[in-house]
Simulated assay, not measured.
Amino acid sequence: MKFLRFNFCHPVKGNVHLTLLSKDTPKSQHSVFDSQETNLIEVPIDHCEDGKWKIELDWEYENEFFMHKKEFEIKAHKKIY
């Protein structure tokens, strides 16, 4: 399984937004994350098709709001026989 991993300095709860940028009609997905007692967030990307994507994380910590945005690309691994 493929993941995007984010390591925080403290436990966090928030939202994940994934948007496919490389198609004429952008596709978007939303989910909620909770690192519970760890500092690690793993966002699964196995279901994401090939192309350019944008991930946005937003969360609240100690009454302050934070956001992280990053673009990434998924490329198919072609097998050569």
Rank of each mutant, 00 (worst) to 15 (best):
M1G: 11
M1C: 04
M1E: 13
M1L: 03
K2C: 05
F3Q: 13
F3D: 15
F3R: 15
L4P: 02
R5S: 11
R5L: 08
F6K: 01
N7G: 04
N7Y: 09
F8H: 10
C9G: 14
C9H: 04
H10I: 05
H10D: 10
H10E: 08
P11E: 01
V12T: 01
K13T: 06
K13N: 02
K13A: 07
G14A: 01
G14S: 00
G14H: 00
G14F: 00
N15Y: 12
V16R: 00
H17S: 12
H17P: 08
H17L: 15
H17I: 15
L18K: 07
T19A: 06
T19S: 01
L21S: 02
L21Y: 03
S22W: 09
K23G: 07
K23P: 11
T25I: 14
T25C: 09
T25K: 12
P26L: 01
K27C: 10
K27T: 13
S28L: 13
Q29E: 14
H30G: 04
H30L: 07
H30I: 12
H30M: 08
S31L: 10
S31P: 11
V32W: 05
V32I: 06
F33E: 03
S35Q: 10
S35N: 03
S35I: 02
Q36K: 14
Q36N: 10
Q36H: 12
E37P: 11
T38R: 03
N39R: 09
N39S: 10
L40Y: 10
L40T: 08
I41R: 12
E42Q: 07
E42T: 01
V43K: 09
V43Y: 04
V43H: 07
P44H: 03
P44N: 03
I45A: 04
I45D: 03
I45S: 03
D46F: 08
H47A: 11
E49W: 15
E49V: 13
D50M: 14
D50L: 12
D50T: 14
G51H: 05
G51L: 08
K52N: 12
W53T: 04
W53S: 00
K54W: 14
I55V: 08
E56H: 09
L57H: 11
L57K: 05
L57T: 05
W59V: 00
E60S: 10
E60F: 02
Y61E: 09
Y61G: 07
Y61K: 06
N63L: 13
N63H: 09
E64L: 11
E64Q: 14
F66M: 01
F66E: 02
M67R: 15
M67K: 12
H68D: 10
H68P: 09
K70N: 12
F72L: 05
F72P: 02
F72I: 07
I74M: 06
K75Q: 09
A76C: 14
A76K: 15
A76R: 15
K79R: 12
I80P: 01
Y81P: 05
